[in-house]
Nucleic acid binder design. Sequence first.
DNA 1: GTCTATAAGAAGATAGAC
DNA 2: GTCTATCTTCTTATAGAC
Lengths: 205, 205
Amino acid sequence: MDTKHKILDEALTLFSEKGFANVFVNEIAERVGIKAPSLYKHYKSKQAIFDAIIDEMNHRFEQQAQALTIDGTDPAADAEVYKNMDEDHLVKLGTDLFKYYLHDSYTRRFRKMLTIEQFQDKDLARVYSQQYFDMPLSYQGMLLGLLVSQGLLVTENVPIMTLHFYAPIYMLLTVCDREPEREQEALKLMEEHIRQFDKLYGRNF
Amino acid sequence: MDTKHKILDEALTLFSEKGFANVFVNEIAERVGIKAPSLYKHYKSKQAIFDAIIDEMNHRFEQQAQALTIDGTDPAADAEVYKNMDEDHLVKLGTDLFKYYLHDSYTRRFRKMLTIEQFQDKDLARVYSQQYFDMPLSYQGMLLGLLVSQGLLVTENVPIMTLHFYAPIYMLLTVCDREPEREQEALKLMEEHIRQFDKLYGRNF
DNA sequence: GTCTATAAGAAGATAGAC
DNA sequence: GTCTATCTTCTTATAGAC
């Protein structure tokens, strides 16, 4: 990895653990393996490093959103995937989603950084809500909506059903972000949550 | 309010908006109406102000927990309250709970401060989880458990039912903390959430 | 308990050699 | 692009008068 990008990577790690204000350019440089003044050949200020992280992530989010939309506009293909969906498959889907969000290094660090910085300005607040509230509800609502069209789930209110599916996942994720040692407990609750979700919304017969 | 306590109050406001590291003793003093050096007659350091806030809150939490436990150990009295519980009452209960947590000044500022500082050390992480995960699930689990004994709700897994009740409330609360202008939207989702919750878990006949 | 003046140190950023 | 040396500013905290 080139120095310019390694700076972003190490800065993201530090920002996600201590927050922007508690990280000194000194520490970032040390982790990169250079001296602090050398950082300024790559970025004009500490704030510019933070901004570059946000930019990079906005870029990733756009790509991600595009990928999700493409899948979404081909319901026929998606429906095929969920044709044989049963409770165990739903548990695996939810658990995998949870584990991915929790363990993917970039995703986790960025989420924690945004958790710390979300109140600093309106832009960061919007990014957080977009990424961890609006987008997941929208995307998962689409997927669960497919299961409803398949007749595998039953509801008159897909958005609220989606809230019921996602909110517990989100809350357990925040628990594990701050107390990683509670992951097993969280995974157990996750599984129980989804099985109960399936009983509540699944076809009853 | 005496100066010593006004310092805590103004510091809490600032810490909840910008985080500990981004608040200067200068600003705290200015809001209190004194000069920065005078702060040091009341608290020996900026960190001591933060610690005093945490201490004060731990004290409030203990009282609160005690009050809740006392209610909880008298199920007969509580059961009486929920005897005539119906969907509209449940909506009001949830909405009131939500509005209280969202608008109570002290509660809101402390929650936001803890949101920012939760990753700084294990103690703060534990306080956050305790206050916004374990305690609400425990207390609401007890209340919903009463409704199950009353036969008003039906489930074989009260803890997961409680997760289904509380997680959406928690998530909507975090949305409003960072984007207060979304309160109306959140309240609408809250009501739909609880009505759907009641349909899912309520006696079906 | 509050003030003014100031010490002490930290942290971001720049200059200029290599 | 990286370094050493240094500047500048900001911030916490103390000293000592009132």
